[in-house]
Design a protein around this nucleic acid. Structure first.
Length: 802
DNA sequence: AGCACGCCGACT
DNA sequence: GTCGGCGTGCTC
């Protein structure tokens, strides 16, 4: 039998199937989707079995050396999906397969040196010393040492040989547990063997009448109120047996979830649920776009449709954006479905993610709630896929494979003939356009549950504030309202969009801005250690006291960071208790959750933060939301800037007045007339959609045109330019005349980590041959890619144009 | 990607 | 004459 295998070598020349023989002893055990260890040239690598056949065209093949799985880790569906991903995103097949599995399962190669079995001579003096107390030497121990040449020589003459061990990154966690090494019926007679004085031992043993499964040692000690000594002697007498039991690292072990029952649906909700239920009952694929204003009860719809799928014996995937995976969302799912739920998000450790994955793999859970990569959950009988906040940019992976979770979800749902529900208050323009064209089915919720009113929104023109002499970052209206909430004991949320607004250093005399020496971007000031830092390459230097250019002392920090807002808040509202949430304060594991918990418990009056506070949170006493600089992201070089601004403002406004108390929103801006800001303040998605569609049509952007972005980078600017030019010319010559090829043009950040970056953008409507052409480009430059350190990245449907 | 093979310059 | 530099090409 021959296995078709994708080897774990992410390179152009190895990105194809290799044939290996299956040893006879494994013929009945091996299945497609398993990981194996195969000899590859002079080394050993991990491989994925993707097919089993009888014949090979090759003269001779080498054999699979080892199996790494007992059960396939990829189902036939996922294998097919992997190849689809490879094709869609132009990545290596291994990269696609690896993206579908938890990082902990990535192979870990350990190289070591041993004395060759066939060798019975004498080792060189310097080398034999290394083998005095052991029979293998880890490669790391000698690879940088002086003796390396001698080792190499010994390998050459056959005295030593190098071996590679392929292991998993993280092994399942085990714990010591106890079982009876004989049938329960023998308990009584066995107990008689014990000395009459061994009262406690008998007592412990008698507990095993009730215990049916292996029990962990600490648990037994607790249960029997005894000590380790008692148990140890029982084990020594052979009356109990100690085994190693696999356990899960459960990140939610110590949390209890309030069980919840299905809520009564409003008329609107019922109308939205019905077609989804139909799709489930009749088992056909359909994509629903569930557009519901903030607070309209989308989550309850998710819960009830999932419950329906579970009743049919099917499984469900729920995707949530990375940052909004608030404890609140997890609680609601765990509360409704209990231990049937696995959770997968970036806050978990590698080991925890691995364990959650194994629960899915073994069929121990029916629902997974997770970020982007949870879309690959190895379920075999999917009933429904839900994508909450479907417009969120975190669903697009920005590294290879550059997939969008929405596309993967739809692909999987077609296979399983099940519905996909895309939920959002502010759908992505592309999604809404598809709903308009009836590609998706539009379901709308226009009212908040219990008919709560949308908050009142006030737009404050910061230019006016400046003219009237207010130079602070808080306008008069916002300041007054903050004081009002403080007096009433209500809470406020302040949003600062830091992107494009970080603190940089500028000289007021000569205008000099301190830039990173390796990237074309200004350095950001970090107050904690008084350092200037580059956010792209990590370069750091001390903040200068005088201008490096003109030695002027009038050098100052410009821009607004959360730290500075916090300082100013402390000045103008000294009594307010503030919680700051940004990358700095939430870096630690669980910090995100903890800070939100504190705010929810009323331990602060104001929550100040970046984008991460904009979504998902739902606190009763929040009645004021302030947006400090609504236009911060409006002028970024990105055709989605208006859309992102509209979405963010709408989302954050939705945080106010979700319960008994009425909410208010203050939006501070320098461009109050901009349609994103105007329509967001009126909660008017439809008008925004019409206006933005006009702009997209005019400029030839999605959803009217598809976009593919090719990024080229190299240390030498001339090289980048010439390669980009060749690529653009090639495309211009081969694409249809309705398509537009833009470039070569320098990227928005023309240099990162001492590499120059150019790009080429393709806009097209129909271009069935594009993938082939792109592959041809990669092939043509493949030599320079490896040899000359040239980089070409291709992003079909990019979300970041930088 | 690794790793071996192979062909040229600077040393004992 | 040999050691080691890295350019070239292959891995079932």
């Amino acid at each position: 039998m021959i296995a078709k295998i994708i080897v774990d070598v992410p390179a152009n020349q190895t990105d194809r199937l290799f044939d290996y023989g299956v040893p006879e002893k494994w013929e009945d055990l091996i299945e497609p989707g398993m990981r194996v260890v195969v000899p590859f040239g002079p080394r050993k690598v991990q491989g994925f079995v993707v097919d089993l056949v009888e014949e090979t065209e090759l003269e001779k093949v080498r054999n699979i050396q080892d199996m790494m799985d007992v059960d396939p880790v990829l189902t036939p569906e996922l294998i097919e999906l992997g190849f689809w991903l490879t094709d869609e995103t132009l990545c290596f097949a291994v990269s696609a397969f690896q993206a579908m599995l938890p990082a902990a399962m990535k192979a870990n190669y350990k190289k070591k040196i041993v004395v060759a079995e066939t060798f019975d001579g004498k080792l060189a003096e310097e080398v034999s010393r290394w083998f005095e107390h052991r029979n293998e030497i880890p490669w790391e121990d000698i690879k940088d040492s002086q003796v390396l040449p001698i080792f190499k020589k010994e390998i050459k003459r056959g005295a030593l040989e190098s071996q590679v061990v392929v292991k998993e990154k993280t092994a399942p966690k085990t714990q010591a547990a106890l079982i009876l090494p004989y049938p329960k019926e023998e308990l009584e007679s066995r107990m008689e063997e014990l000395n009459d004085r061994a009262v406690k031992q008998k007592e412990v043993l008698s507990l095993f009448y009730e215990i049916n499964a292996p029990i962990a040692i600490p648990e037994l000690i607790e249960l029997a109120d005894t000590t380790r000594g008692t148990i140890k002697s029982l084990v020594q007498k052979g009356l109990l047996k100690q085994i190693e039991q696999e356990i899960y690292r459960d990140p939610y072990k110590f949390k209890s979830f309030k069980p919840s029952k299905p809520l009564d649906l409003t008329e609107e909700q019922r109308k939205a649920v019905e077609p989804i239920m139909n799709s489930l009952d009749e088992s056909y694929h359909n994509t629903f776009l569930l557009q519901g204003v903030t607070g309209s009860g989308k989550t309850e719809i998710y819960l009830q449709t999932i419950a329906h799928a579970l009743n049919q014996g099917k499984e469900a995937i729920v995707l949530v954006p990375e940052i909004s995976l608030t404890p609140q969302m997890v609680s609601r799912f765990k509360g409704r479905f209990g231990s049937d739920v696995a959770v997968m998000h970036s806050g978990l450790s590698k080991g925890e993610k691995y364990d959650e994955w194994r629960k899915i793999h073994r069929g121990e859970v029916k629902v997974v709630v997770g970020a982007r990569s949870a879309v690959f959950a190895p379920f075999k009988n999917l009933g429904i896929i839900i994508i909450d906040e479907e417009h969120e940019s975190s669903y697009k992976q920005e590294e290879t494979p550059r997939y969008h979770a929405r596309d993967v979800a739809i692909k999987r749902a077609k296979y399983h003939r099940c519905p996909v529900v895309l939920g959002s208050a502010t759908p992505a323009l592309e999604s809404f356009a598809r709903a308009q064209k009836q590609v998706y089915t539009l379901l709308q919720l226009k009212e908040r549950v219990n008919k709560r009113e949308m908050p009142d929104v006030e737009i404050v023109d910061m230019r006016e504030e400046l003219r009237s002499g207010n130079r602070s970052m808080f306008s008069k209206p916002l300041f007054d309202k903050l004081i009002d909430r403080l007096e009433k004991g209500e809470q406020s949320v302040l949003l600062l969009n830091r992107r494009g607004y970080s603190t940089f250093l500028i000289c007021r005399d000569c205008g000099y801005v301190l830039d990173c020496p390796h990237c074309d971007i200004s350095l950001t000031y970090h107050k904690i250690n008084h350092m200037m830092k580059c956010h792209y390459c990590g370069y750091e230097q001390r903040a200068p006291k005088v201008c490096p250019n003109c030695t002027s002392e009038h050098i100052r920090f410009f821009g607004t960071g959360t730290q500075r807002v916090e300082e100013e808040l402390a000045k103008i509202l000294p009594d307010a208790r503030v919680i700051r949430m940004d990358v700095d304060t939430t870096r630690r594991k669980g910090a995100h959750e903890k800070l939100l918990g504190q705010f929810g418990d009323g331990k602060a009056d104001i929550l100040l933060g970046t984008q991460m506070i904009a979504k998902g949170l739902d606190f009763e006493k929040v009645t004021l939301v302030g947006v400090l600089a609504a236009d911060a992201m409006l002028h970024l070089p990105d055709f989605r800037a208006s859309e992102r601004t509209f979405q963010l403002l709408t989302q954050v406004s939705g945080r106010a007045g979700r319960h008994e108390l009425h909410g208010e929103v203050v939006i501070q801006t320098y461009t109050p007339e901009h349609y994103s800001i105007q329509y967001a303040s009126h909660h008017d998605f439809d008008s925004f959609y019409v206006k933005e569609m006009q702009a997209r049509k005019l400029h030839g952007y999605p959803p009217f045109y598809y976009i593919t972005l090719i990024n080229i980078s190299h240390e030498e600017i001339t090289k980048v330019l010439s390669v980009t030019e060749k690529i653009t010319n090639f495309l211009k010559a081969n694409l249809s005349e309705n398509s537009i090829v833009l470039g070569p043009v320098a990227s928005a950040i023309p240099r990162i980590k001492d590499r120059y970056r150019y790009q080429c953008m393709i806009k097209y409507k129909v271009e069935p041959d594009l993938n082939r052409l792109l592959k041809e480009i990669l092939k043509r430059f493949s030599k320079e890619l490896t040899k000359d350190n040239l980089q070409i990245t291709i992003d079909r449907n990019p979300h970041m144009l930088m």
